[in-house]
């Protein structure tokens, strides 16, 4: 499998998020990943960018949001960064399986979804930038197969 890294930057508006999603989907579909895993990585990235727009940029256009996607032999690493308002840390969220079927919450599933579909999710602030790093481990393929 080929290795590499790409940076994508969009303006902080929900109408632009699909562009990042489609790029991630296309990249992921070119490596040995199931359709489900490809969908989940795209979803996690979309949720992370949505969170940046909503919580860091307060739904205000005009702020750059960057997505760096790196492919290596055993993992895909995605770093979503913005220079908006930082969260102190990733807030605690209830597990998805604690949802009351009679009273489901209307919102607040983005972070839960990211945590559920990715192998690692971490948040930090570095100077002026907020960085959300997500990692998905790739299935091990026999040498020469990919």
């Amino acid at each position: 499998m080929r290795h590499g890294s790409i940076n994508l930057t969009i303006d902080s508006h929900f109408k632009n998020v699909f562009l990042v999603g489609l790029a991630v989907q296309r990249i992921c579909s070119s490596i040995p990943l199931s359709d489900q895993s490809t969908y989940e990585i795209e979803l996690a990235v979309v949720e992370a960018v949505n969170n940046s727009i909503e919580h860091a940029c307060h739904n205000e256009p005009g702020h750059p949001i960057s997505v760096q996607l790196s492919l290596s032999a055993d993992r895909i690493t995605v770093i979503v960064s913005d220079s908006g308002e930082s969260a102190e840390s990733l807030r605690e969220t209830p597990a998805l399986d604690t949802v009351d079927p009679l009273h489901p919450p209307e919102r607040g599933r983005g972070l839960q979804i990211m945590r559920a579909v990715m192998d690692e999710v971490a948040y930090r602030t570095d100077g002026a930038f907020n960085l959300l790093t997500m990692v998905k481990y790739l299935p091990i393929t026999p040498a020469g197969d990919a």
Binding site: D35, Q36, Y39, L43, L96, D97, V99, P101, P104, R109, Q112, I113, A116, V117
Partner: peptide
């Protein structure tokens, strides 16, 4: 579709 349905299962909204 299966991938969309999987989101309902993941979030337990298939119970809703």
């Amino acid at each position: 579709r299966n991938t969309v349905l999987s989101m309902f299962k993941l979030t337990r909204l298939d119970r809703v």
